[in-house]
Amino acid sequence: MNFPEGLKYTREHEWIRDDGGDVYTVGITEHAAEQLGDVTYVELPEPGLVLDQGQPAGAVESVKAASDVYAPIGGHVSEINQELERRPELVNTSPYNDGWFFKIAEGNLREFDTLMSSTEYTRFVEDLDE
């Protein structure tokens, strides 16, 4: 399982990347995508929406399951991945690149710093499997 270094991770299995310029990209981890199986539908937040950390910011559905997606940090939605509407399978095939969900601008850096590192998230997932 691949959890790239440099990204931060949440207990709800989102990843978030600091793109610089106070913009952050959010998606779901390879572990989450594999647990869901074939992703069939992604609901994304409205651009401009102001989010608090942990607030529901969308949903992801697969053939056999559905779950909410939460804001890893507070900020406002600056961009969404509209390609997912047409090609939700990108979440499975490219969870950290083409399968990104949305971007957060003016994100809360202090909240970002408290999230799990790659190593911590790897351990978190291993503990779940036990």
Partner: peptide
């Protein structure tokens, strides 16, 4: 088995 290659493919 719930799936092999993936549910969409098998369907």
């Amino acid at each position: 088995p719930v799936q092999y290659a993936g549910i969409l493919h098998e369907h």
